[in-house]
């Protein structure tokens, strides 16, 4: 089966000469959930902006569902942007239309959908994140957690191959965090969660990748990466005080709360 995402030897320097990525290799299989961990300034956002061709021009290649990103090819780029749904960190950047419904319709309408099919996409996406009841409200009247969930819906409506979330838990309260985790758990799409919220990575993703100073320095099971204190310290990653990754196991993925009576 074609992997959802294949990054090969990706290197990138900003025009001011700052080298942000040094040869990234990353493959994410279909349906997999991967956390991209790294301290501030590690190059996480730069990598994300390469995944849908907003940044390009360095070395290496990015393939999404087998389709290679070629910056000059506008038609292919459109398809890439359909396949890669990026949820940005600040929902106020993502939600720019006068109402939630218009905003969720923005992506699919750009893909050329209209009429009943467009309505169906919008309703399905809003229902998937439990936000169907706010469809006609302006985004700035929603709570922060609601806005984040609507932001997820805006890309879900494009039926992406892979969902990329940039710091999904920033500014969320604990209840908002949990609700978002439940929504993401129920989606069943390939997920790449970019974060430095380590417990959240453990909760949602089996596998984690650590990006540090523009290189991937570790790739493995989230639980074992987080148990490696030395590795975390070297890359400025820290678990919250009192959090033991051997106790807090992934709640999702067949280990739903109701059935998790394994007595760890």
């Amino acid at each position: 089966m074609t992997p959802s995402l294949e990054v090969r030897g990706l290197a990138f320097a900003y025009p001011d000469g700052h080298q942000a990525l040094y040869g990234i290799d990353l493959t994410i299989g279909r349906g997999e959930r991967v956390a991209l961990l790294g301290p501030n300034g590690a190059g996480k956002t730069t990598l994300v902006l390469h995944l849908n061709g907003i940044l390009s021009g360095g070395l290496g290649s990015v393939r999404v569902g087998g389709l290679e990103i070629r910056p000059g090819d506008r038609q292919a780029l459109r398809e890439i942007r359909r396949r890669v749904g990026v949820v940005f960190q600040d929902p106020d950047d993502q939600l720019f239309m006068p109402t939630v419904r218009d905003d969720v319709a923005f992506g699919p309408a750009n893909l050329g959908l209209s009429g009943a099919e467009l309505d169906r996409r919008v309703d399905a996406a809003l229902r998937a994140v439990g936000m169907g009841h706010v469809a006609d409200r302006p985004p700035h009247h929603l709570s922060f957690g609601q806005r984040r969930r609507v932001a997820v819906a805006t890309v879900l409506a494009m039926e992406p191959e892979i969902l990329v979330l940039d710091e999904p838990t920033s500014n969320l309260d604990p209840a908002g965090r949990r609700e978002l985790a439940e929504v993401l758990d129920g989606l069943g799409v390939t997920l790449l969660v970019v974060t430095h919220d380590l417990p959240y990575a453990l909760e949602l993703c089996e596998r984690s990748v650590i990006l540090s100073e523009g290189s991937i320095v570790a790739d493995g099971r989230t639980a074992s990466l987080l148990a490696n204190e030395e590795l975390l310290r070297r890359h400025r990653l820290e678990l919250p005080y009192g959090f033991d990754p051997r106790v807090g196991q992934s709640r999702y993925r067949g280990a739903r709360p109701a059935s998790s009576t394994r007595g760890r």
Partner: peptide
């Protein structure tokens, strides 16, 4: 940033 988010959605 808004423009980036718009580009990302086609």
């Amino acid at each position: 940033r808004v423009h980036l988010a718009m580009l990302a959605r086609g």
